[in-house]
Deep mutational scan, measured.
Amino acid sequence: EPSQADLDALLSAVRDNRLSIEQAVTLLTPSSGGGSGGGSMDAKEILTRFKDGGLDRAAAQALLAGRTPA
């Protein structure tokens, strides 16, 4: 399960175009075949909204942490 520091680094990389959204989703869902963790939004949607400015960093982190299976 990614830590808050991992999520923060991942969000920074996506925002700075050092990591594509697809690459980030793969890192967030290493063994689930890329499927959502059952959250209301999947990781790709969360990351896309964050990059487009629709979500701030704290909200994106909380959503990603919340949808990651324990």
Rank of each mutant, 00 (worst) to 15 (best):
R15T: 06
S20E: 03
R67I: 12
Q61K: 14
D56Q: 04
R49N: 10
G39H: 15
G39A: 14
A62P: 01
D6F: 15
A60I: 03
L11N: 00
L28F: 05
S20N: 05
A60M: 03
S12E: 13
I46R: 00
R18F: 05
E22W: 04
A62K: 08
L7E: 02
A62I: 10
S36F: 13
S32A: 14
S3V: 15
V25Q: 04
Q23I: 07
R49S: 08
P30V: 12
N17P: 00
D6I: 12
E1C: 08
M41K: 08
L64M: 03
R15C: 07
G38E: 13
P2S: 13
K44I: 10
G37I: 14
S3T: 06
R18N: 08
Q61L: 14
L11K: 00
G33F: 07
L19V: 07
P69D: 08
P2W: 15
T29C: 14
G39R: 01
L47F: 10
G39Y: 10
A43Y: 14
Q4F: 15
A58T: 08
A58I: 09
S12F: 04
D8M: 10
G35K: 02
L64Q: 01
R15A: 13
K44E: 06
L10D: 00
N17A: 05
V14C: 02
S32L: 10
S40M: 12
S32D: 13
Q4L: 15
K44P: 03
N17W: 04
R18E: 07
D8A: 06
L55N: 01
S20D: 05
D16F: 04
S20H: 03
E1F: 14
I21F: 02
E45W: 05
L11T: 01
S40A: 12
P2L: 13
T48P: 00
L19A: 02
D52L: 10
S36I: 15
L19H: 01
A59M: 08
A70G: 11
P69N: 11
L64I: 06
A9I: 07
P69C: 06
A65Q: 09
D42W: 11
G66T: 08
S32P: 07
L27E: 04
A9V: 07
A5C: 15
I46H: 01
L27T: 04
